[in-house]
Design a protein around this nucleic acid. Structure first.
Lengths: 152, 152
DNA sequence: AGGCTCAGGTCGATCGCGTCCACGGAGAGT
DNA sequence: ACTCTCCGTGGACGCGATCGACCTGAGCCT
């Protein structure tokens, strides 16, 4: 993980569809060298996936909610997690410090679907209570932040 | 935005680096046809970007925090937003229903940097108070959910 | 009905890219 | 100094991206 790897990661965070040839030009290596480096970054789990970022409304996901979860005293955290994993509406899941063990970001098509999701969450064994906030609009999301190169 | 467009979006959400030729095979069109459709999806803002998803720790962003913002009575929401936009640590910004007008997701390298960020947020004109939750771990993030095709 | 126009597809050709392989140089260990 | 290893380069070749020409069906006007 040197400065060149960092540049590659940075470039791909900005545009995942850059060709290897283009990456090579940007970092000053040959295309095969870049290919191998990127392959290692993928294999090493540094690069997890390449995803198209889509306007959620366009695919029928108009409602975004953020949901805090309080576990009850009987809860097995792994089981709760597994239950959340089965719910495709939950796009992100953070394990938090504080009273609320989890914070979930969910996207659904309608408020009615959100209601159903919350009911299911409250019924999940180990869940004591939920607290839901509705996002009226998403100003931005997953903006990549520039990483500073460690000063040489 | 027909069923084929939806399939393309779905495929690219799963893997943004699929070639047009591969996409074409999957949806049963020719490569140029797919090329044109994807171009229109990009131009129409349906596909916003292609991003590599990177393990944050690998690029020196070990601390994830979720921060609720309460505006004061003098606040101009647009100005507050603009101030947030200038802070690169803020990866996502949702405008929320409820007492807290915004919910921010921020990533920084260290707890010390988080402290500095919170100080800056509290100093921002229009911000009355902040409430910060720290994510101990990210179980998953931005998992693409399968979209159901509208029944034909 | 006939024909115009347009949207959106296929086909074919060209050029650049991805990817495999053989080769070479720098640095570390013996 | 020799050699091993790592990491790069350059060449070759097949596939993909992309452009232009052409085809087809739907909708509409006359």
């Amino acid at each position: 993980m040197d400065a060149i790897d960092l540049s590659l990661v940075e470039l791909l965070r900005g545009n995942a569809r850059l060709s290897y040839a283009e990456l090579a030009r940007q970092v000053g290596l040959s295309a095969p060298a870049v290919h191998e480096r990127v392959g290692k970054l993928e294999a090493g789990g540094i690069i997890r996936a390449y995803r198209a970022e889509v306007e959620p409304e366009a695919i029928g996901l108009a409602v975004t909610a953020l949901i805090g979860i309080v576990e009850d005293s009987t809860a097995d955290t792994d089981d709760v997690l597994e239950a959340f994993r089965q719910m495709p509406e939950i796009e992100s899941c953070y394990f938090m410090a504080g009273v609320e063990s989890f914070l979930l970001k969910a996207r659904v098509g309608t408020i009615a679907e959100l209601e159903q999701l919350i009911v299911r969450l409250n019924r999940t064994p180990g869940v004591a209570s939920t607290r839901t906030g509705i996002a009226l609009s998403t100003k931005w999301e997953n903006r990549p932040q520039p990483v500073e190169l460690p000063a040489s």
